[in-house]
Design a protein around this nucleic acid. Structure first.
Length: 478
DNA sequence: CCTGGAGTTGTCCTA
DNA sequence: TTAGGACAACTCCAG
């Protein structure tokens, strides 16, 4: 029998939800639960969270606290020390949490387990964030997959299916720690400047909002997803990524809901396409798990010799959305204003930074890390390496996105571009993606003065493309 | 060990 | 106007 006077400490991490939360579910079975969150701001233990993510976290913790009827306890500092201290002061018999599959968290978890075990405290960790455990999906020879399609088809889909979602714990009696916990505002998650106010109007944060968003997506936007997801002016993408990152919803809660919907409505193609995007999320975590240096080291080491440019002015122009290429600038401004960027546009701005500006993908990775509400170490680094060509199963080097063609193809009516580049809103579609080609009188009528109201292109597409191809060619000859 | 097919998202040129 | 091949060659993966 479990000892009834001992309490179970549940440590929330990237799993800020009550439903389908395996660790919390088990903790609740034991009796009283001390629910806690620890903000570890020390750069040594992890990448310090970017500003947009911190804004999201602030809101997410407050929402979680509401669901817990005000019983969430928050702390700041070293998780090992805090867990130890709390355990000793509170008659804690067990500590449960859900695993965060990032390298230093995994390492840190092992240390914590060892320290707590010495004190006679039971530790248990659960998988709440991935459909498949990265350590379990391997090739027949025991090594890990490096190509997405076989990983997904032969690895994941052939393995036993993901856990079906759990309900909320039906009885959850939580304890408030009156001595050590600090207030939510003491976490200092919000910056001094008010730039984040524009995020407030874009997002609803928290578990309920995540489920609502999933259901609306399934009802209204899954049909046509496969094709529609390419068009940034449409709402055919789910925008669930920040909710997934913070664990306000689990991939399992999406995986099974999508299938249920698609089977009823015969949306096989849209379903497969959407599920494979969850597969890409798995693949990113998988790569990070097996190659922990992914955020900082080229997956393909031959890229260590790549002749990157080092031009701060070009980088700044890209960050501010002042490159003179409207679809690129629209994307970068969407990022700044909303903490998000449509996937198609992420590829376009990524290709532009890495190939046309010839700037190291890590500049892009860092900027996205700072600005995205869905910033995720695994997805972010895997995706940047993919677009740069240095990653696993990466884009071939000769694939250079042309921002003019991409704009014309995927935002043909200019709805998206005009939304974020109001100074070009009067320009007709024909010239919207190449204002430098517009005749004088057209520019005049549209009230566009290149170099004043909107920049000239900062690089020549043709020349920069040639230069990139040459550098990549040289690399592949080595 | 060998073999052959395959590999998220594109662009450009040519016929 | 449009469709098809070139862009390069490598590594991965399964049989």
């Amino acid at each position: 029998m479990r000892s009834s006077h001992k309490i179970t400490l549940f440590w929330f991490r990237e799993d800020l939800r009550l439903s389908d939360n395996p660790g919390l579910f088990e903790a609740a079975k034991n009796g009283s639960v001390l629910p806690i969150y620890i903000l570890e701001d020390t750069p040594s233990i992890s990448f310090k969270m970017g500003s947009a993510s911190r804004w999201w976290l602030d809101h997410s913790l407050r929402m979680l606290n509401k669901s817990l009827e005000g019983k969430l306890n928050v702390y700041k500092g070293c998780s090992k020390e805090i867990l130890l201290k709390l355990s000793q002061e509170n008659q804690v018999g067990a500590v449960y949490w859900n695993t965060s599959y990032t390298p230093w968290h995994l390492e840190n978890d092992d240390e914590i387990k060892a320290v707590l075990a010495k004190k006679g405290i039971e530790c248990k960790s659960f998988n709440a964030s991935l459909l498949w455990d990265p350590s379990k999906i391997l090739k027949k020879d025991g090594s890990y997959y490096k190509v997405f399609t076989p990983f997904y088809r032969n690895g994941c889909l052939q393995a036993s299916p993901p856990r079906t979602p759990l309900p909320k714990p039906d009885r959850l009696s939580c304890i408030k720690d009156e001595y050590n916990q600090i207030g939510f505002s003491d976490l200092n998650l919000l910056p001094d400047k008010n730039w984040y106010l524009s995020l407030e109007s874009c997002w609803e944060v928290g578990e309920k909002a995540a489920q609502k968003k999933r259901d609306i997506f399934l009802d209204q936007h899954l049909k046509g997803y496969k094709e529609g997801r390419n068009y940034p002016s449409l709402s055919h993408t789910s925008r669930l990524s920040p909710h997934l990152h913070f664990g306000e919803i689990s991939p399992n809660q999406i995986w099974y809901a999508v299938q249920e919907k698609a089977i009823i409505h015969g949306l096989d193609n849209d379903m497969d396409c959407f599920l494979s995007e969850l597969g890409w999320r798995e693949f990113s975590y998988y790569l990070l798990y097996h190659f922990p240096e992914l955020p900082r080291q080229n997956f393909q080491s031959k890229f260590n010799a790549f002749p990157w440019e080092d031009n701060v002015l070009l980088l700044k122009a890209w960050q501010k959305g002042q490159t003179g290429y409207p679809i690129v600038d629209a994307g970068m401004r969407e990022l700044w204003q909303t903490g998000y960027m449509h996937n198609r546009v992420r590829m376009i701005v990524g290709s532009f930074l890495v190939k046309n500006l010839l700037l190291n993908w890590q500049y892009g990775e860092n900027w996205f890390w700072e600005c995205l509400v869905d910033a995720d170490l695994a997805s972010n680094s895997a995706s940047w390496q993919w677009i740069a060509g240095s990653g696993a199963d990466a884009a071939p080097y000769f694939r250079v996105f042309n921002p003019v063609l991409q704009g014309e193809k995927f935002d043909s009516q200019g709805e998206y571009t005009r939304r974020y580049i109001p100074e070009l809103s009067q320009l007709p579609n024909q010239y919207l993606f190449k204002p430098w080609e517009a005749p004088e009188d057209v520019l005049k009528v549209a009230k566009v003065v290149l170099g004043q109201t909107y920049p000239h292109p900062i690089v020549s597409l043709r020349k920069s493309r040639e230069r990139a191809l040459e550098s990549y060619r040289r690399l592949s000859r080595v």
